[in-house]
Design a protein around this nucleic acid. Sequence first.
RNA 1: GGUUCCGUAGCUCAACUGGAUAGAGCAACUGCCUUCUAAGCAGUAGGUUAAAGGUUCGAGUCCUUUCGGAAUCACCA
Length: 596
Amino acid sequence: MTISFQIQQAIAAAFKELFEAEVSVDEIKLQPTRKDFEGSFTFVTFQFARMSRKNPEETGRVIGEYLKNNAPEVIADFNVVKGFLNLVIADSAWVKAFESMTEENYGFHAPKKEKVMVEYSSPNTNKPLHLGHLRNNFLGYSVSQILSAYGYNVTKVNLVNDRGIHICKSMLAYQKFGEGETPQSSGIKGDHLIGKYYVRFDQELKKEVSALTEQGMEEEQAKKEAPLMKEAQAMLKRWESGEDATVSLWKQMNDWVYEGFDATYKTMGVDFDHYYYESNTYLLGKDIVSEGIDKGVFYKKDDGSVWADLTEEGQDHKLVLRGDGTSVYITQDMGTADLKFKDFQVDKSIYVVGNEQDYHFDVLFKILGKLGRPYAKGMFHLSYGMVDLPSGKMKSREGTVVDADDLMQEMFDTAESHTKELGKIEGFTDVQAKELYRTLGLGALKYFLLKVDPKKRMLFNPEDSIQFQGNTGPFVQYTHARISAILRKAEQLGIDAHAKAFLNVNKLEKTEAELIQLLGEFPEKIKEAAEDYAPSVIAQYVYDVAKEYNRFYAEVSIFAEKDENALQFRVALSKAVASTIRKGMGLLGVDVPERM
RNA sequence: GGUUCCGUAGCUCAACUGGAUAGAGCAACUGCCUUCUAAGCAGUAGGUUAAAGGUUCGAGUCCUUUCGGAAUCACCA
């Protein structure tokens, strides 16, 4: 039983006995005591003064007395400042609570019945991944890890946007200017090769458009009238009709892209349980439109277009099918939602998509709710902010994107030069050293992107690249490496980290108690991160743990300790911290090294 | 223009969902390696939480207004 739960129960009992008031354990909220005050947990009494019929300060004092007398094995002392009751925990209670934290699976929750689907990444197959995708992928992967640590059965899904006019643009440019170039012949990674032709299309189109505007045509008009654009449209029609030559070019180019993506995903350390392709799903959803008309959720205009009236929900009318009977984006999203549910019977469905689509998902979920879909209430749009550069927004056409492959490579290189500068790779083979650079570089990058609240826009400055000191991935990784060295030495000395000799310890250093208190928060932090879909909660937590351990490391000597029980305790504590760091970083998708 | 989100130290971010004197890291400045890894530790300095009102024991957090920024509002995806 956790210390905080014991305290909550004791306070509930105090209310009953002292004030004849029923207060449930859930209502009794404890917070960690601020560092400036004596104690570990604080109970705020203001809102309970009504029940005690005493002022907040007196209420705190009376409860404090009660706890000290009735639960002396936990509460060693207390003090009251205004309405804040600060509780000092007995060292022996900390040690006892620590025992459960040494278990292998500590922190992870028992399996739940519910199934959750997390859709993330969802790239277009016409250009390589960039910095924005990195945030998306790291978020999606991390949230999946966190949800499964919380006990859900998680399915990771990638819905690939592999068709449409934008794909035809790069196909057309390749056909016109490619001269049979392939990834093999050019040595260019498949996704980058395709991206090159997407950019080329845009350049050529611009030429045509400016030629037309010089002849006096409006720019909007010129974009539609440009021959290249018309050709791309025609190509899309041929693709939709299944014309062999077009389809086989499409397949060929997509294969190159997938080869490139697979390499990038592998480097990123993310994966998927299932892929959906829009080329298979883009026609779905039309039957839902007719179903909606029957149910009175949609209505048909004279021109044949179909709309959803969302004015009651505080929104506008929304088109769900064009007048010519073809789909819009939301049509296929309705169909895909049904398909996902049919395939996996999920209870919750998380869409990791940028916040520029807030409105779209709001509408989608409302429509599915009105259609009476049972899964609608379990849908959630995990909306995240843009990653901005100091120069502003990234624009692929203007070449201001930070490419994912390039960025990761830079991080590896930076990790390498840092490590060499510090002279820390003696005894490493080349393979091990290279592995370390990847672990550190990727750790720095992932941690950097995940420590920020997903909802917020964030700034990425490539100039003063990502730090390796302070609140960073490598800082946490370094702490793990330090502990690993301790554990190796302990093993040599024959000290068993798994033994229970520490139970005899009844006097702790302050920083040791702090560490146990922090470790005690781990299950709660996983819960919080899972319920809020917020890896940043885990990142912040793991940082706090590492920070506290480094203080312990500096202040308390382990192997110079004479008392065998205390020595064994410090080794066991170190092991538990290392394990928590490893598990916590694992939830972020970050590996931790044994040495660095 | 409507809707939604955001504004916290010079910079990048926190703040347990309304709690104590708003905390970390970077950058700057002081100390600490013959000891378990200095990618570390300890410390100094840095704030009218964009502004003004309101709600209450108590507001960075909730409400109103103003200022500034972003996204979105397509028979695009």
